[in-house]
Each structure stands twice: as structure tokens, then as C-alpha cells.
Design a binder for these strands. Structure first.
Lengths: 166, 166
DNA sequence: ACAATCTTTCAATATTATTTGGAAGTTCGA
DNA sequence: TCGAACTTCCAAATAATATTGAAAGATTGT
């Protein structure tokens, strides 16, 4: 396959994949573009290559910086900023995981913790409390794991599971 | 907190959570409603309690059945169907994981496998191939783990990680 | 076979999310 | 301080997605 075709497929696929996971298509595409670019790109480069507006490029670049997936880079003698993606897939995975944990998992754990103390003891309330309890237990365990596990723990787990269990 | 307030909060939160993860709000809300209901509900019950149309209720119930998150139940002497959610949180997690693996992860692994063989050897192509290779490696490891890991493996991992690493 | 009751489909509509593009803001060097 | 070069903001436009509701399709008991 030719490079430009492959790049294009990758950008499209990453965009589609992202939008199935609640990340907007452009943000995922900008990320994809930076991921496979050997050098940092300017806002204009991103606009051109993806055919998106300046505002859109800017907003998504900022969001990616927020997520720690992209860094600003200054080139000496250049006024404008350049952007460069983190290329280490483990760091990418970690940053995405941490960010979503903070934004989505933690609030859910907190809510479930409250809900499992709902007052009452009829069948309906019992079913509700049981579910809140079980979900709280699962989500808080996951939360704890994400807090404490390191890259090497996860690598070990993935390796162990994918070889030992073969 | 009162039951009806708690139920409502849970349904809203589950709906919002779902939509951040690419699952539509109604599907997640129907799921939430069934999760906390001690008895199976009919389509009409779902329509009333969530204020959604018949078509919408029906479509999302079918989708939940597809995902193996909800079962049809027949009550003797009743013409219509009732619906009941799987209540075991581990089974819920497993079914969601398996389904998303099949729909999203597997196609991505396949694509990356192709892309990492792109022809060429200049800096741009090399950067691209490297990224495709790294992502393929990560995603296929995750894929392998999801294939082989059982409930008890995961429970063990979560427990070990959340207690030993404390 | 019919009527009653329930389920499914789908085109129209409504809602929500994303994108645009121009205006305002910022920074830097002369 | 000014103007050039760039970045950010945001209201309006557009696009994508979800929902409705009425009609068609099934199924069951008589």
C-alpha cells in the first residue's frame, strides 16, 4: 500500500474509532495526523491536511494538549507554535485512561457510593441498593487499579495473560 | 435519599455515562431502568417510566438483547413480552467488553496489521510504520487478553492490584 | 379466517454535537 | 506604542444522530 493511502486510511479509521468512544472525530483525526508525522506540525499544516477550519484545528489541538496527548513545540526563529504528539503508545494509553478515569469513572463511583445508601427495604429498594452496591464495588476496584498500576504492571499482565493462557 | 430520587439520578447518570462512551442515551437509560427493576418490565412500562415512544423503546430493547444485556421473558397467561436485565455485574462487564471487542477492536487490529506493511523507507514512511507497528502490538495484546481472560482472572487481577499495590 | 393485541419498521422530525469564519485578543520586535 | 503575525473565542450554520408516531407486520385465541 502507498503511504498516502495508508495515512488516509489510518486517519479515517482513528477518527471513526474515536467517535465510537466519545471523542469527536476531528480531535481523533488531528491526533492521528500528529501521531504519524515525523516532525511537529503547525496549525496551518493541520488545517490543510485535514481540510478543517482554523477554529476547529485550534480547539482540538488545545483539547489534545489538555489530555497530554500533544505538546507545543517552539522552533527557534519561528513565531508560530508547532505541535507534536506523544509517540509512546503506553504513554498515550495511560494519558487517555487517566483522563477518562478522572472525568467519568470517579464521578460515577462517587454517585454509586451515595446511591447505595438509599433508605427503604421493600423489594424495589432492595433491588436498587443491591445493584448500586455491586456497581460501586466493581467501579471502585477498577478505579483503584487504574490509580496504582504502572506501565510495567500492565505490560506484565498483558504478557502473562496473552502467553500463559494461550 | 428517597428511592424515586435515587432511581432517577441513577437513570440519568447511566444515560450520560453511556453517551460519553458511544452508547445512545436511551439505550443506556432503558438498561439502567431494567437493571434496578426487581421484576421484568413490558415495553409499555419502559415507555411510561422513561417518557419515550414505543418505537424508541422497542428499538433499544432489541439492541440490548443483541448485546446480551437483556433477556425476553414470557409470563404465563400474558400475551406481551417482558424484559429483564442481566443483574450480575461481571456478566454485564463481560458482555459489553466482548461486544465492543468484536465491533471495534478487532477491525482496528486488522487494519493496523495491514498498515504496518506499507511500502517505503523515507522518514515519513518510517514514522508511520513505527506507529502502526506499536499500535498493532498494543491492540493485539489487549485483544488476546480479552479473548482468554475469564471472570476469575480479572477478579484476581483487580483484587491483587487493588490490595497488594495499596 | 378473523379480530384483538402486541411488535417492528421507517420516513419525517427533533435534538444534539460539530464546524465554521469572522472578530477580538495576544505577543513580539522595531 | 504600533502593526504584523499568530491564537483564541463564540454565535451562527451545518451535519450527524436519535426520536417519534403512524402504518404495516406478527401472533394468538376463538
Amino acid at each position: 500500500m502507498e503511504l498516502h493511502e495508508a495515512k488516509d486510511k489510518f486517519i479515517q479509521a482513528w477518527g471513526a474509532f474515536g467517535s465510537q468512544w466519545g471523542i469527536n472525530r476531528s480531535m481523533a483525526q488531528v491526533h492521528a495526523l500528529l501521531l504519524i508525522s515525523p516532525d511537529p506540525l503547525s496549525t496551518e499544516d493541520v488545517m490543510e491536511q485535514l481540510n478543517i477550519s482554523r477554529g476547529n484545528a485550534n480547539m482540538n489541538l488545545r483539547a489534545l494538549i489538555d489530555w497530554h496527548l500533544v505538546d507545543r513545540v517552539l522552533k527557534t526563529g519561528e513565531r508560530r507554535e508547532f505541535f507534536q504528539a506523544e509517540k509512546d503508545v503506553w504513554k498515550i494509553a495511560t494519558h487517555i485512561t487517566r483522563e477518562r478515569k478522572k472525568r467519568e469513572l470517579e464521578p460515577m463511583v462517587r454517585l454509586l457510593g451515595e446511591l447505595k445508601q438509599t433508605s427503604g427495604s421493600n423489594a424495589e429498594t432492595k433491588a436498587f441498593k443491591q445493584m448500586a452496591h455491586d456497581l460501586h464495588d466493581l467501579t471502585s476496584r477498577i478505579d483503584a487499579v487504574l490509580d496504582r498500576s504502572t506501565r510495567s504492571d500492565v505490560q506484565w499482565f498483558l504478557k502473562a495473560a496473552s502467553t500463559l493462557l494461550r
